[in-house]
Design a protein around this nucleic acid. Structure first.
Lengths: 211, 211
DNA sequence: AACGGTACTCGTACACTGTTCGAGCCGTCA
DNA sequence: TGACGGCTCGAACAGTGTACGAGTACCGTT
């Protein structure tokens, strides 16, 4: 059976999703493809390149989930939400995406789209660069963390240990029953970010220097 | 020579800083301590626990660099800047901090301090929880990414490849000479975050629901 | 002074990992 | 038919984290 890069990436994602990040070894990948353990090496330079491909594939999926929008704000929100949706559907690949700098073709495609929108809306080069990196950075951390929690919850029980002997504020928070859901946390953070970017941009255009 | 947990963590950080994240193996760690390869295992459960200790140690260093402040805003800014300073001084340990959920004693100490300040300034439980996780999440990603760039720059040259065949917006940005320094990027993001949190909080107190 | 036990060290071994190498297969073109 | 290039894959290598158990060094008690 002829192996292709796409099939290889598919198989890797399947393993990551079904058995977790630690389960992905080159031998296991070969087995998943009904191929010899090292056949993959002809198509892919090594495990690093494989993981880059996996990450970019997922970014592509994220980007595909973002429809056309009117404003940069709507686009950013849609992108962040799409990223969350996709990564939570693939909790096993989330750490992979989080760990590497995203400069694959799909990542560039998405960046290009965002920069275009920002330019139309009057952002200058510097501001748009800063805004986009901030958005991407924040979104990945938060969602990767959430995916980790999701994976941890699926695994064996781990008792939290004596959380807080003398941390009254933390105890009050945890015990207060006000623990927000992951959804709320995400939407709050997203709102904070968009409001902040918007406020900065307004201020910049009015000529007032920050701080 | 008697080994202590502190000495072990010290040695691990030394290796991470001097030789990079990949160089830290249990055997190498033993050698650094002039000890047998597996002696460490009596003091530490395994490599995972070791890395947790390393991460918390660094968080402690970050926290120590944050002086007393009047407002939550000043504290958050100081914490983020301290984190950046410390992680850039230890680029090798940055990925370790980035990879794990921070629930060690020092992390809890810092969280407790922040929550206390937020409470004094009138944040309710939910808002302060959201604000703190957003701050920590954003800061770690950005700084870890920056540390990675720093490490990559120190390593062997890697040509970027054909960056953008048909990505005009990206090309314009990179070629425009407006590439902001890491400092500027960081301060911008921090400003965005703090402005956003502040705006949200104001709106919450005025009783207007978001969006 | 002799004993028992606890705290600690470490050599060996096991089951893995990513990756290299080179021998072999197979279809295509001359 | 022969040769060649694309492709597969078994064996081997160096290295990993960790379990186990034998060994040592120190301790308070008798």
């Amino acid at each position: 059976m002829s192996l292709t890069r796409d099939q290889i990436v598919d198989a890797a994602i399947r393993i990551l999703d079904d058995e977790g990040p630690d389960a992905l070894s080159m031998r296991r990948l070969g087995a998943e493809l009904d191929a010899g353990a090292t056949s993959v090496y002809w198509h892919v330079k090594g495990k690093d390149e494989l993981l880059d491909l996996v990450a970019d594939r997922v970014i592509g999926e994220v980007f595909a989930g973002v429809g056309a929008t009117e404003t940069w704000r709507a686009w950013m929100a849609a992108f962040a939400r799409s990223m969350r949706r996709v990564l939570l559907a693939h909790p096993g690949v989330a750490p992979v995406v989080g760990r590497r700098a995203t400069a694959g073709p799909n990542a560039l495609l998405a960046l290009e789209a965002l920069l275009g929108l920002l330019a139309v809306d009057g952002f200058d080069g510097m501001s748009s660069m800063l805004a986009s990196t901030t958005l991407v950075g924040w979104t990945t951390t938060l969602v990767v963390a959430e995916a980790r929690e999701l994976r941890a919850a699926a695994g064996p029980e781990v008792d939290e240990g004596p959380v807080a002997p003398q941390h009254p504020a933390i105890v009050a928070l945890l015990g207060g029953g006000t623990m927000p859901t992951a959804d709320v946390r995400f939407e709050y953070g997203l709102g904070v970010l968009l409001d902040g970017i918007s406020a900065r941009e307004t201020r910049r255009r009015s000529g007032t220097d920050g701080d």
